[in-house]
Simulated scan of single mutants.
Amino acid sequence: MADVGQVLELAAIDGKTVLTPEQKAALVTSLKNKLEGLVAQHTDMLENLTPKVRKRVDVLRDIQTKHDELEAKLIEERAALETKYQKLYEPLYSKRYDIVTGVAEVDGITKGGDETLVDQKEKGVPDFWLNAMKNNEVLAEEIRKRDEEALKYLRNIKWCKTDNPQGFKIEFSFDTNPFFKNSVLIKTYHMIDGDEPILEKAIGTEIEWYPGKCLTQKVVEKKPKKGSKDTKPIIKTEDCESFFNFFSPPQVPDNDEEIDEDTAEQLQEQMEQDYDIGSTIRDKIIPHAVSWFTGEAQDEDYDSTILEDDLNSSDDDEDDEEDE
């Protein structure tokens, strides 16, 4: 019997979001079986109920079944809506790309006249994606000063769902630049579907850096130890912080490879941070890029955070009053 995740994965193959009658039935059955499985784990408690209470619980289970049928319908309709609106977004994203890169000009701008030489050379919106990302708190922490020159060549960012394996990928398109050969850098997230999506692993494009241009490493010069016969400085290459480390995500060890608890916790934190960056780009930067570029989204994000904090604070105050 297929579980909920398997049914949804089957429904997503080849972009299909409408469940077949068989898939609908399987989804409802899966949800029902899940509930019955939980009940089976607590048979001792049920057996201790009086006949009248047990009868009431049976009716509650019937109500739960109806709820699960509605939940299955919600999942189906939500998937269909997401696909529908992603298709509606595409022409808008294409138009945005044309304006940002200077492929198309907007109404009201004419060539010649009072244009300066700088105006004539300046196409589109320079540093659009760089500034959009820098105005986001999560991404700003990842971007170093030395990254900025390379990110000025960023032409577009887009994302799409992946079906096999299930997850999503983010594509960064770059102009020809002096830092690396790649025209596209891709980050792919493989997810384990369940009640809540869980990150299984992430894969990034290997960046083909030009000699001496690698931004994820730096050359350091160290003095030789005191008393050493060799007085020449030691030249070493060390890893360093960079936004482009995003394309070298933390790797999950093989199943047969044992790791200690501290290492496991550190790996989990790294994976959570990596997913946070990816989901921020997917859910905030791409759909609201111009608002992040202008800083408007930054203010809205701040306001929503303040509102959430105020609501949480109010809840805490109410709890304190009740305790008194």
Rank of each mutant, 00 (worst) to 15 (best):
V4T: 10
Q6I: 04
L8C: 13
A12Y: 11
D14Q: 08
K16A: 09
V18W: 02
E22Q: 06
E22G: 03
V28Q: 02
T29P: 04
T29S: 09
S30P: 13
N33I: 03
N33R: 07
L35P: 05
E36F: 14
G37H: 02
V39R: 02
L46A: 03
E47C: 11
E47R: 11
E47L: 15
L49H: 07
L49K: 13
L49P: 05
T50R: 05
P51F: 01
R54D: 07
K55T: 09
R61L: 15
R61W: 07
D68W: 08
E69A: 12
E69S: 08
L70A: 14
E71P: 12
E77W: 08
A80S: 09
L81Y: 15
T83H: 06
Y85D: 05
Q86A: 14
E90F: 14
P91T: 11
Y93I: 09
Y97R: 15
Y97V: 07
D98M: 13
A104P: 01
K111A: 12
K111V: 14
K111Q: 13
G113T: 00
E115M: 14
V118N: 04
V118M: 06
G124T: 08
D127F: 15
N131H: 08
E137D: 10
E142S: 08
K145H: 13
R146S: 10
K152V: 12
L154K: 06
N156D: 13
N156T: 15
K161Y: 14
Q166Y: 12
F168K: 09
F168Q: 12
F168H: 13
S173P: 07
T176E: 15
F180L: 10
V184L: 08
I186E: 15
I186Q: 11
T188F: 08
T188S: 08
Y189T: 11
D195K: 01
I198H: 01
L199G: 02
G204F: 13
E208W: 07
W209P: 02
Y210S: 03
Y210R: 10
G212P: 01
G212F: 12
G212E: 15
K213C: 02
V219C: 09
V220T: 13
E221R: 03
P224V: 08
G227D: 03
G227C: 09
K229C: 05
K229T: 07
K229A: 10
P233R: 01
I235C: 01
D239E: 08
S242H: 06
S242T: 05
F243W: 15
F243E: 06
F244T: 03
F247Y: 13
Q251V: 09
P253I: 04
D254L: 15
A264T: 10
A264V: 12
L267I: 11
E269V: 14
D274R: 05
Y275Q: 04
G278C: 06
S279C: 00
T280Q: 00
I281C: 01
D283F: 00
K284A: 00
I286W: 02
A289K: 03
V290I: 12
A297W: 01
Q298A: 04
E300I: 01
E300P: 01
D301W: 00
Y302P: 00
L307A: 00
L307G: 00
E308L: 07
S313R: 07
D315Q: 00
D315G: 00
E321K: 10
D323G: 04
E324T: 13
